[in-house]
Amino acid sequence: AVSDRLIGRKGVVMEAISPQNSGLVKVDGETWRATSGTVLDVGEEVSVKAIEGVKLVVEKLE
């Protein structure tokens, strides 16, 4: 699937994400809805860990 190529890629949070609410991330110039187990603020760099349906699962870049 086209989304599989995104796993491991870096992105930037465009709309804040929390465990309760999905947000938006931009990866390779495309905007995706994303979820995370932690709070991520706009502008934070993330990496794509998995894909669930049409949402990316991301975590903060260390």
Rank of each mutant, 00 (worst) to 15 (best):
Gly23His: 01
Trp32Pro: 02
Leu40Pro: 00
Val42Arg: 11
Ile51Trp: 06
Gln20Ile: 14
Ser36Pro: 02
Gly11Tyr: 00
Asp41Arg: 11
Glu45Gln: 11
Thr31Ser: 13
Ile51Leu: 08
Lys49Met: 09
Leu61Asn: 08
Met14Ile: 12
Trp32Leu: 06
Glu30Phe: 04
Leu6Tyr: 05
Val39His: 15
Ser47Lys: 14
Lys60Trp: 04
Lys55Ser: 14
Ala16Tyr: 09
Leu56Cys: 04
Gly8Tyr: 03
Thr35Met: 09
Thr35Phe: 04
Ser36Met: 01
Val12Trp: 11
Ser22Tyr: 08
Val13His: 00
Ile17Arg: 01
Glu15Arg: 05
Val48Ile: 11
Val54Gly: 13
Glu62Arg: 10
Glu45Thr: 15
Ser22Thr: 09
Glu44Trp: 13
Thr35Leu: 12
Ser47Trp: 14
Trp32Glu: 02
Ser22Lys: 05
Glu44Gly: 04
Thr38Met: 14
Val12Ser: 08
Ser36His: 02
Lys10Pro: 13
Thr35Tyr: 05
Arg33Phe: 15
Ala1Pro: 13
Gly23Asp: 01
Arg5Ser: 15
Val54Asp: 15
Ser36Ala: 09
Thr38Gln: 13
Gln20Arg: 12
Asp4Val: 08
Glu44His: 08
Glu15Gly: 09
Val57Glu: 05
Lys49Asp: 03
Ala16Cys: 07
Gly23Tyr: 07
Arg5Ala: 15
Val58Met: 03
Ser36Asn: 02
Lys60Cys: 04
Ser3Thr: 15
Glu15Phe: 06
Val54Leu: 15
Met14Phe: 08
Val25Lys: 00
Ile17Met: 08
Val46His: 01
Ile17His: 02
Gly37Glu: 10
Ala16Glu: 09
Gly29Thr: 08
Arg33Ser: 14
Gln20Met: 11
Val39Arg: 09
Gly23Pro: 01
Ala34Trp: 01
Met14Val: 14
Ile51Lys: 04
Glu52Pro: 02
Asp28His: 06
Ser18Asn: 12
Asp28Met: 07
Ile51Gly: 03
Gln20Trp: 07
Glu45Asp: 10
Ala1Tyr: 04
Ala34Met: 01
Asp28Ile: 06
Val25Met: 02
Lys60Gly: 07
Glu30His: 06
Glu45His: 14
Val57Ile: 11
Leu6Ser: 03
Ile7Leu: 11
Ile7Ser: 03
Leu40Phe: 10
Thr38Tyr: 09
Pro19Gln: 09
Lys49Leu: 12
Pro19Asp: 09
Val57Phe: 12
Leu56Ile: 10
Val2Tyr: 03
Val42Cys: 06
Leu61Cys: 05
Leu24Gly: 05
Glu45Asn: 13
Lys10Gly: 09
Val13Glu: 00
Ser36Glu: 01
Gly23Val: 02
Gln20Ala: 13
Gly53Tyr: 04
Val12Ile: 11
Ala1Thr: 14
Lys26Val: 09
Lys10Tyr: 08
Val25Asp: 00
Val42Trp: 04
Val13Arg: 00
Ser47Met: 11
